[in-house]
Design a protein around this nucleic acid. Structure first.
Lengths: 255, 255
DNA sequence: GAGTCTTTGTGCACGCGTTCACAAGGACAT
DNA sequence: ATGTCCTTGTGAACGCGTGCACAAAGACTC
């Protein structure tokens, strides 16, 4: 080390940019892989490429955590793993409840990625009484009536909602009232929460729609590049249900 | 309304900011709900609140699409639904393949949100031969050897990867080679793709880690506030493994 | 110990996204 | 018609995130 001299850039654990926080898990994953291969050190260039980001960005991200690298050498893998884990709060064990044990909830319960890295499924909760007591991924499903009790007894502060959209807000309200302050929402619903509660959402159909937008744009570009005369596009090529990129079919006009 | 007609603000389908595109599905969902309740028009304020965004942002977003509102009145719900659907490319039907029919893949196959809005599961694909022929959500699972054939015959351009992390890059390469240009990746892997291929990732453990970060920060703030003033609820000093926000335990220092 | 080489850490500039604040525009009543 | 009232559409300012480019700093050689 010897580098220990000062370097406490004021922007310590307080001011880490949100965009950086969102990338730390990515770095952590890449570093863990390196660690398992017993790689001792890694340069910003190598690590950045493994994490799929730009090396300057990575260095700047790490600079918010502190000066953990060695110039001319790179970063100590084990040390970085520890620092990032600590920064993300993964040195402690976060109990999590999953509410809504349908296909998706069951899939998440079975997902191995939980326990491995600081998270533990404290309980599975469902509103269907016929589910109660059944085991999913070795964990018994409990009725939603017990929600508050479960949260208090286990000191849960993170909840995952995998209910149908219609039930999500209701479940959310109960979770928040019971003391949950972080929610991961898989339901296709915009949750209203009070100040101080974090919500992150994962929404399959939104992601697909964004992809569809770009896909459409790419198709339109290809089409206009293919035909020398950009006047009339719309060739049978491609999928059946086609539509000009400027398909101004009024269809439904406002009255 | 009679407002229709004219308005072609130059910034047509070309320059829609990415951030706006990502919000369009949100607006669309809120509008669809209004449409089902037969609400004829909606103001930017109302719609914004339903979509969980700021009304100025919403108006600016819509301004990229064109001038579809009526001053003093608001937006025509049906008309906006149509315009946004068209912009997102949902007036056509996108065939999608899901690769990796484990718990998650099966959950997605069962998810109703697909067909309802412009997407159709063209095939389920898995590498396990014993899965082949079995039905999941009424769709037969086919072997990964058929991947290329399936994609070509159905003109698929969007692929969903729900394999384990180790297989993801390999599957991705095959999808891209077969002509897929948009990928939704659920595997915990950073995919390398050539120029022109869009990848969006959904990663449960990354989301949880981000929540954990904020949760830790909130806990640290509460703790430091508690020293001065007593707090209502919140029983113990938190779960077992607590750690100061500045827990500078050197633990392992690099050489 | 001096010089070279490598890689970090960061100052700076730029572009995107967000928000404010208000003029422009249209509906509706009189 | 004319005036009032309401809501949109947008110019402008600001802040965050990104990427470049380079000086600073340590390791390694001779």
């Amino acid at each position: 080390m010897a580098t220990g001299r000062n370097h406490r850039p004021a922007t310590r654990s307080r001011g880490i940019p949100e965009a950086t926080v969102a990338r730390l898990p990515l770095y952590l994953r890449a570093l863990t892989a390196l660690s398992e291969r017993s790689v001792p050190t890694v340069s910003s260039e190598e690590l950045a490429s493994a994490a799929g980001v730009n090396s300057a960005k990575l260095r700047k991200d790490f600079s918010y955590l502190g000066s953990y690298g060695t110039r001319g050498v790179g970063y100590d893998v084990e040390y970085l793993v520890y620092q990032i884990s600590r920064e993300l709060g993964l040195t402690q064990d976060w109990p999590v409840v999953i509410v809504g044990i349908g296909n998706l909830g069951a899939a998440l319960a079975n997902y191995g990625g939980f326990a491995s890295r600081g998270f533990r499924v404290a309980a599975l909760i469902d509103a269907d009484p016929s589910m109660s007591g059944k085991q999913v991924a070795g964990i018994p499903v409990r009725h939603v009536d017990e929600l508050e009790t479960i949260i208090h007894t286990n000191g849960v502060s993170i909840g995952v909602i995998t209910t149908p959209g219609g039930a999500a807000q209701q479940v959310c309200d109960r979770l928040v009232a019971a003391g949950i302050t972080s929610i991961l929402n898989f339901a296709p619903t915009v949750l209203q929460v009070p100040e101080g509660v974090d919500v992150r959402k994962v929404d399959l159909s939104i992601e697909l729609q964004i992809l569809a937008f770009h896909e459409q744009r790419k198709a339109a570009e290809d089409l206009s590049r293919e035909t020398a005369a950009p006047d009339r596009m719309r060739v049978p090529a491609e999928q059946r249900g086609e539509q000009g990129p400027e398909g101004d079919v009024p269809a439904v006009m406002p009255a």
